[in-house]
């Protein structure tokens, strides 16, 4: 239902999207995972029609997304900003934003009440939104995007800065929406979220997709190896040098930084050997963790970055 082909967008010298291509089917929930600055918001903004000056094409429901105004009402957008009126109640916000789409007022009211119940705001729907907590506002922000039953829902970092309950409630909602047949793209830099919510995961950085597939498919990229994370008082260069003679078929240095390095090993038997090299060079180790392959290790391998920001 959605085909994005060779979408490129630059801000001056910065190439925010680099021939980005993606296909999405009905009911598919795609988690778009990428560090800050990867181009996630740029992509969502172009699809939402609020950002111009790009190249490439997007076909939605068989038609050119940018040429057909009708398609706007088939698209639901949940922006990264809390974009609603704080002085109005949740219900009034729903009626306003929903009203901008062609919907009958009675139907809209019913749908708004349903959705507010669904995201747990039903009891406080008549209160001015400014009295809400951050999590409640996020839930409202999400619910507004669903009012007109879109065929495709785009959410930009819908879970940023909220408590666990609110996060779970929003992720449940996304899953339900997908199960009901709406295609969803949501961006995040939180690995755990895509692991539990998505039918497909795409990892992007520097404006393009680096890898995509189901969780299993992605994890296989790093193979059946364990990941060893070592913390200590060492410089990146010294660490690389110390383990140099070990690396090869059985040990791979994934990343080395000052005080933190990670390696992939075929066998845990390699770990004492690594420690031995470090002790010989008098590199102090303060902590060590062994992890089974996960999305995080895939991400680390592909982007060379940890998902801290």
């Amino acid at each position: 239902m959605l085909e994005i082909k060779d979408l490129s967008k630059s801000y001056g010298d910065v190439l925010a999207l680099d021939r980005f291509s993606l296909d999405l089917k009905k009911g598919e929930v795609l988690g778009l995972l990428g560090p800050n600055g990867a181009g996630k918001t740029t992509l969502i903004s172009i699809l939402a029609g609020t950002l111009g000056d790009f190249t490439g094409s997007v076909t939605f429901l068989g038609r050119n997304l940018f040429a057909d105004r009708e398609l706007k009402s088939r698209l639901g957008i949940v922006p990264q900003d809390m974009a609603f009126y704080e002085e109005l109640s949740a219900m009034d916000n729903m009626l306003f934003w929903g009203g901008l789409y062609e919907t009958s007022r009675a139907g809209l009211k019913r749908r708004a009440a349903e959705l507010l119940d669904l995201v747990g705001l039903g009891a406080r729907a008549r209160e001015p939104v400014k009295a809400y907590s951050g999590g409640m506002k996020r839930r409202l922000n999400t619910a507004i995007g669903l009012l007109h039953k879109p065929d495709l829902l785009l959410l930009d970092e819908p879970t940023v800065g909220i408590d666990v309950q609110a996060k779970v409630s929003i992720l449940d909602l996304i899953r339900d929406v997908g199960a009901a047949g709406t295609a969803v793209i949501f961006t995040t830099h939180q690995l755990a979220e895509v692991e539990t919510t998505c039918s497909r995961i795409a990892i992007m950085d520097h404006g393009r997709i680096l890898a995509q597939g189901s969780l299993d498919q992605l994890v296989r990229i790093v193979g059946e190896r364990d990941i060893v994370e070592i913390m200590g008082e060492f410089a990146a260069a010294a660490f690389s040098e110390a383990v140099q003679d070990l690396t090869g078929e059985r040990v791979e240095l994934l990343s080395a930084g000052d005080g933190l390095a990670s390696l992939a090993v075929r066998d845990t038997a390699e770990i004492p050997k690594i420690m031995d090299r470090l002790f010989r060079r008098r590199l102090a180790v303060t902590d060590m963790k062994i992890k089974s392959p996960s999305l995080e290790t895939v991400f680390l391998k592909l982007t060379g970055r940890t998902l801290r920001d």
Binding site: S73, L75, P79, D81, A83, W97, Y101
Partner: peptide, 8 residues
Amino acid sequence: RRMMTTPL
């Protein structure tokens, strides 16, 4: 921006 994503 949100308004401009709607048919308005």
